[in-house]
Write a protein that binds this DNA or RNA. Sequence first.
DNA 1: AAAATAAGTACTGTATACAAAGTGCATAGT
DNA 2: ACTATGCACTTTGTATACAGTACTTATTTT
Lengths: 227, 227
Amino acid sequence: MEELKLDMDSYLPLRDVVFHTLRDAILKGDLAPGERLMEIHLANKLGVSRTPIREAIRMLEKEGLAVTIPRKGAQVARMTEKDLEDVLEIRDALDELAVSDACNRMTEENYADLKRAMETFSEAAKTKDVRAIVEADEEFHNVIYRAANNPKLENIIRNLKEQMYRYRYEYVKGDADFLQLVNEHEQIVEGLREKDSVGVKAIMHTHLRNQVESVRGVIRRQNREEA
Amino acid sequence: MEELKLDMDSYLPLRDVVFHTLRDAILKGDLAPGERLMEIHLANKLGVSRTPIREAIRMLEKEGLAVTIPRKGAQVARMTEKDLEDVLEIRDALDELAVSDACNRMTEENYADLKRAMETFSEAAKTKDVRAIVEADEEFHNVIYRAANNPKLENIIRNLKEQMYRYRYEYVKGDADFLQLVNEHEQIVEGLREKDSVGVKAIMHTHLRNQVESVRGVIRRQNREEA
DNA sequence: AAAATAAGTACTGTATACAAAGTGCATAGT
DNA sequence: ACTATGCACTTTGTATACAGTACTTATTTT
C-alpha cells in the first residue's frame, strides 16, 4: 500500500521530466544559447514522443529560457548584456523586498536556520572551496526567501536567478573578498534580529552590488571576446 | 507582395490563439476560479484539437492562471487573500523600481507621452466614467514602465497585474478620491521631470498603497461572503 | 442498512500519422 | 560564372488513436 502511494508521489508526467532535463542542460551550458531545439531530435534522444517535448518547450518559453519563431522552431534564448543587467536590477529590488519581509515575518525556526546557514558559509569561506562557498551562499539567501513567506516572490526570484545561473561561480571565483562577504552576512543576520528593515535592505543592496558588478565585468569580457 | 508579408506577420499558431482566448476568459471571470479546464470539452468548444489546448494550458500554468494536478487535469487557479497580498507587495516594489528607472532613462518622447497620459487621466477623472478612468490610469503607468526601459521588468509587472485583473475596477469604483489621484499623478510627473528618484519612489508607493488597501478590503468582503 | 468492491465512464498521458511550410541544394538557363 | 527556379528534405502544426488512471455508481456481502 505504502509503496504504491510512494509511486504516486514520485510520478511525474513526461513533460515535467523533459522540462527539467532541458532546463538543466540549458543552465549548465550543454545546450548553448542560440542552439536549436528540434522536436524529433530531442524526442529520439530522450526516448519519448514529440508531445511531451512540445509541452516542455512551451514551459521553457514562459521561463524565458527558450524562444520560438512560428514555423521555424525553438532555440535556446540568447542573453545580451542588457538583458542580464535588467535581470540583476530586478533581483536587487526583490531581494530588498525579501529581506525586509523576512524582518517582519521571521520565525524562531527561520532564525535558527539562518544562523546555521551563516556559520556554514563562514566555514566554507575559510576553505576557499568555490563550489562549497557558492552553495553555502545560495542556502543563506534561500533561508531569507523562505522567511519572507511570500511564495510568489520566491518563484520570481528563483526564475531570475535561473537566468543568470551560468555566472553563479564567477563572482566568488574572481575577486571576492570572502571575509567581507562573511561580514555582510553577519550584518544581515544582525539586522534581521534587530528587525531593522531599513538598515537590512541597505546592507542587502550593497551585498548584491559587488556581485552585480562582478557579473557585469564577466559579461563585458565575454562579449568583447565574441566580437 | 505586401499583403503576403502581412499574412505572414498576422499568422498565429493555434496554441497562441487558444492561450489568449482562455486567458481573457479567466481574467474576465467567464472561467471561474476552480473551474476545470477539460481538454476535449475546450477543444470542441473552440473547434481545435487537444494538442493546442494542452500547449495553451502549459502556458497558463506558467503564468499562474491555471494549476494542474497530474492525471486529474487543469483548473483555473484560485487566489486566496494571502496570494493577492503577496502579489500586491511585489508590484509595489517593482513599481518603485520602474519609476526610479524611468527617472534616469526617460527620453523626451517618453516625457511627452507621460504628460499626455496625465492629462487624459485628469479629463477622465472629471467625467467620473469608471471605465475611462481605469484605462487612463493603466496607460499612465504603462508609459512609466516603457520609460523604465527594462522589458523583463515590464513582463513581470504585466503578469502580476494580470493576476489581480479582476479587481482593477474596485478601487476606482469604490472610495477613490479622484482629485487626490490626479494630484499624485502630477507629483509623479513632477518628480520624474526633476529626476528625483528617491522622492518619486515614495510618491509611487503612497499612490499604490491606497489602491492596495482598497483591493484588500474587497477581497476580505468577498471571502466573508463565501464563508 | 452500511460498507466495500467491482464495473463502467470520462478524462488525461503519450504516441503517431498526416498536412503544410520553410530551407537548402542542385540544375538549368542566361 | 552567376542567378533563378524547382524539387527534395527537414521541421513544425494539428489531429487523432490508443493506453492507463481515477472517479462514480451500482451491486453484493456482511
